[in-house]
């Protein structure tokens, strides 16, 4: 068996998710190559070469792969997929955008959001917002899979794998990059944070999210939100946790003013310890919370910050 892992990049740097995808690849077994594609991605390639379990890193560094647009990335993967039995990517917005194209062009199915490897052809994945776990077996010659990071512990960084250039260049006249508005934050990435504190509609407005800042600072936490909070314009979309947002599984998740709709739970119920702060003692979030505190968040948050 041989596996190609598409590296996840964040602003040109190697994203943390890649180390989780390699862990999943190790469970499948066989040689693991990593593809780093983009423009000016040499540093990302060197970071990938350090990851344990990597056999070699292949780098496609060309302007046509800048911003990892779907059309050239899909075409590149089709060119490179040839000898591999599995192609994996993280279930990030890039992985989700690109990998199904490879699957379709190879006339195989894609398994999305895999959370466990049973064997080289049998995998577990959540369906129905995580309310059921399906075990699926693929008889396709090439297995195309996106990996949910929270299902696999990241590999370490003691490796020094060879890095080789890929000179495949494809044409793309169909899509072009216009602009990006990326949230600038000094906080840890939501997906990788050990502690996450999220606010919901109960926060009332965007200004009040500042009440979470001091606590997040003290705990080294990332800040998340429910969809209701995002929809109401309190905070940007990249903070959404849930079935259709980000999936997180930190050691500690603190839900503040969040009712606990199944779509929100889908994104956080695998957290180790869940704390809920809500004024409604019947809120469904308490059914999954290890520690529930009933009360007004506007009184509780300042007190919590001062006592931490």
């Amino acid at each position: 068996m041989s596996i190609l892992v598409l590296a996840d990049l964040h602003e040109g740097q190697l994203a943390g998710a890649t180390a989780h995808v390699i862990a999943a690849a190790q469970q499948i077994g066989g040689d693991i190559d990593v593809l780093v594609a983009g423009e000016g991605v040499q540093a990302a390639a060197e970071a990938a070469a350090k990851l344990d379990g990597v056999n070699k890193v292949r780098v496609a560094d060309n302007a046509v792969y800048a911003h990892q647009l779907a059309e050239p990335m899909g075409a590149l993967l089709v060119e490179l997929a040839g000898d591999y039995t599995h192609v994996l990517a993280s279930a990030s917005t890039t992985g989700k955008n690109v990998l199904p194209r490879l699957a379709a062009l190879k006339d195989v199915s894609q398994l999305s959001d895999v959370i466990a490897v049973d064997s080289a052809d049998t995998f577990k994945r959540p369906i129905y917002a995580g309310n059921a776990i399906a075990t699926v077996k693929s008889d396709d010659a090439l297995k195309v899979i996106t990996i949910r990071s929270t299902g696999f512990d990241a590999v370490g960084e003691g490796n020094n794998a060879p890095v080789e250039a890929v000179d495949v260049v494809v044409e793309n006249s169909q899509s072009s990059f216009v602009k990006e508005e990326l949230a600038a934050s000094d906080r840890p990435e939501l997906g990788g944070a050990k502690v996450v504190i999220s606010g919901g509609r109960g926060m009332g407005n965007g200004e009040n999210f500042k009440l979470l800042d001091g606590i997040a600072d003290k705990l080294g936490a990332a800040i998340g939100a429910s969809r209701a909070a995002v929809d109401a314009g309190f905070v940007p979309n990249d903070m959404q946790v849930g079935q259709t947002g980000k999936i997180v599984a930190p050691d500690l998740y603190i839900a503040v003013g969040i009712s606990g709709a199944i779509q929100h739970l889908a994104g956080m119920k695998d957290s180790k310890v869940i704390v809920a702060i809500n004024k409604d003692d019947e809120a469904p979030i308490f059914q999954v919370a290890d520690y529930g505190l009933v009360g007004d968040l506007f009184e509780i948050l300042p007190e919590l910050e001062s006592k931490l």
């Binding site: 195989v108 199915s109 398994l111 049998t122 959540p126 369906i127 995580g130 309310n131 059921a132 776990i133 399906a134 075990t135 699926v136 077996k137 693929s138 008889d139 396709d140 119920k269 869940i274 003692d281 308490f286 059914q287 999954v288 919370a289 290890d290 520690y291 529930g292 505190l293 009933v294």
Partner: peptide, 20 residues
């Protein structure tokens, strides 16, 4: 399709904890 559904299970049930 070449993908077969072998089994569907409920996820590990998360028990509510305590109120503080």
């Amino acid at each position: 399709s070449k993908v077969s559904l072998l089994k569907v299970e409920s996820p590990a049930e998360r028990k509510g904890g305590v109120k503080v």
